[in-house]
């Protein structure tokens, strides 16, 4: 069995288990997982960027673009189906990245991080100064159907969870496939040595640009999923602290598997939920200390618990 196949089967198995587990889970957990998977999608995009040697501190921009695209299409254009809205969010974010990428693709390291941060903060400012979009208060979104099924009753509780699961599984599968193509394999090559990639006749700029667009599409889908699960959108999604959390999830989770961002996002959400509940006055301290512990004790991220045990670190 090839590695690709094994990953695919594993993801499908995990998807099936998670779907089957839905009736067993309490409702608050369904919501928590749906929101975490939305964040995981953004982290999945960041994972691709990190494999290309780039860290963006502005993924919140694409997250917000996806959410606002889905939200405005839902409330103004009366696009009712959640699946269509998620696709729309991904496409809108990809389009924005297509344009900004013309500039961003020239940058590396901390300068890439800071330029992406500047763009996301400009977007934040524009959203704050748009009373039509509710300014900082944002607005509510309510899809009518999910893949044709009316969004009411039991569906209201399960739909965001199942939708997030389906989008996450599809995205992880697709990204894993992409990374095994010729184009996908250029990403780590760019990180290792851009000069050699150019000598081989590939365009580093195009590779980076393409990966930027893919990462943005994932972040846009994540934004749309989050918006539909939470039912509300506001400019905070584009703020730099949101982007910072995405980077945190990605690094803490580890970058060796396409499943890591999702597992990491769920664990961090759980941790936060328990910390807020049991230490309402010091939950930030608990989060910070835990994150430090993970960074210091597990240099390869949480996922390295699985890989290290077998001595098969890539």
């Amino acid at each position: 069995m090839s590695d690709a196949r094994r990953t695919a089967l594993g993801l499908l198995a995990a998807f099936a288990v998670a779907v089957a587990a839905a009736p067993l889970l309490p409702r608050w957990a369904l919501f928590l997982v749906a929101v975490a998977l939305g964040r995981g999608l953004v982290a999945l995009g960041l994972l691709l960027l990190i494999r290309t040697g780039l860290v963006s501190f502005g993924q919140g921009l694409f997250f917000a673009v996806g959410a606002y695209a889905a939200g405005t299409a839902g409330s103004r254009l009366h696009v009712g189906d959640a699946v269509a809205l998620v696709l729309l969010g991904a496409v809108a974010a990809a389009a924005v990245a297509g344009v900004l990428g013309l500039l961003l693709a020239r940058y590396r390291t901390i300068f890439f991080a800071m330029l992406s941060l500047a763009f996301s903060m400009i977007a934040y400012g524009l959203l704050v100064e748009s009373p039509a979009l509710g300014s900082t208060d944002g607005f509510n979104v309510h899809p009518a159907t999910v893949a044709g099924v009316p969004f009411a009753g039991r569906a209201e509780a399960y739909a965001p969870y199942l939708l997030a699961l389906a989008v996450a599984a599809a995205a992880a599968l697709a990204l894993d496939r992409f990374q095994r193509t010729h184009l996908g394999r250029l990403a780590p090559a760019v990180r290792e040595n851009e000069l050699r990639v150019e000598y081989m006749g590939a365009s580093v700029r195009n590779v980076v640009h393409l990966n930027l667009v893919i990462a943005a599409a994932l972040a846009g889908a994540g934004g749309a999923v989050t918006a539909l699960a939470v039912g509300h959108i506001d400019p905070e999604m584009a703020y730099w602290t949101t982007s910072g959390e995405f980077v945190f999830v990605t690094i803490v989770a580890g970058t060796s598997s396409v499943a890591a961002p999702f597992a990491g996002a769920i664990l961090l959400e759980l941790l936060r939920s328990y910390a807020v509940q049991h230490a309402p006055n010091t939950w930030q301290l608990v989060m910070g200390a835990t994150m430090l512990g993970i960074i210091l004790a597990l240099p390869g991220g949480l996922w390295s618990i699985f890989t290290r045990r077998r001595g098969a670190r890539p």
Partner: peptide
């Protein structure tokens, strides 16, 4: 990220 965690603390 280490300094971000420190910031939270």
């Amino acid at each position: 990220l280490v300094t971000y965690a420190l910031f939270l603390i």
